[in-house]
Design a protein around this nucleic acid. Structure first.
Lengths: 136, 136
DNA sequence: TTATTTGCAAATCATTTGCCCGAAG
DNA sequence: CTTCGGGCAAATGATTTGCAAATAA
């Protein structure tokens, strides 16, 4: 509810005015031009907070372990936002998206990945019963 | 070309026989039951190698910096596999996939992400001229 | 004053690397 | 013998955390 600190406001401004999907470090460098005293930790803290508030989006959380898939064929995934479990979907793969984008943009497209998010069975039923109990 | 070492074979077997998209650490724990002497570094080295050989897939590369997006509306991305640049696509968003999957699976779906991969303009033209010069 | 945030430094965590040794060809 | 892959420990790089000082409510 409280108003943004000047550092948080600056971070948000930098992020909003960039189309490059920057890293924390790049944002830090930019904000430093306006607020030379800012620390990298402040940038991280505010990015986390803004993400939690839903005001920005974090693409691919770094620093939680990579996950591997023994199935190299294109297929889609569902990720549970609560427990992190990843499930294969048997939804049919739509390859036309690749050619469509390639045609429209001229980019060389070689693959695509679709991930749906939400709550898996366990987490959802758990949620409907006991709202504040958290499982790993 | 060479035959898989017994550790690499074991890693591959564990990964193939699991549908859980495991982390390096989980794979390590599993393989240890068969090869108690194995080291975590070996697991990482082989996962990397198997990925490069295209025999497994690495979902969301960890450990390169997280990236943030000031635009919270659902939209699609293109990631250049060479320089890492991420570009917004103006492809129309298909929300029906969420309800379709929700209906078919019973999962609680709250969002989806689509990422296309390939070579961006710069990297592609650069590639056609000089095959072995690497940028960034 | 009281509650938030900051900046800095030290701590974590996942992953990678250096180095030396053993296994396989 | 020579090369390749492994194990272990130390090094990295991104992110997080503890804490005292600064700022805002």
């Amino acid at each position: 509810m409280s108003k943004d600190s000047k550092q948080r406001a600056a971070i948000l401004r930098v992020l909003r005015s960039s189309s490059s999907h920057p890293s924390a470090d790049w944002i830090y460098e930019q904000v430093k031009e306006e607020l030379p005293g800012i620390g990298l930790a402040t940038v991280y803290r505010n990015l986390k907070r803004l993400t939690e508030e839903g005001r920005i989006r974090e693409m691919h959380r770094a620093n939680d372990a990579a996950r591997f898939d023994g199935n190299t064929a294109t297929h889609y995934h569902f990720r549970c936002e609560r427990c992190g479990r990843i499930v294969d979907l048997d939804e049919p793969v739509d390859d036309t998206i690749e050619t469509r984008v390639a045609r429209r943009t001229g980019l060389r497209v070689t693959g695509h990945h679709l991930e749906l998010r939400g709550l898996c069975f366990d987490c959802h039923t758990l949620d409907s019963r006991t709202v504040n109990r958290v499982q790993q």
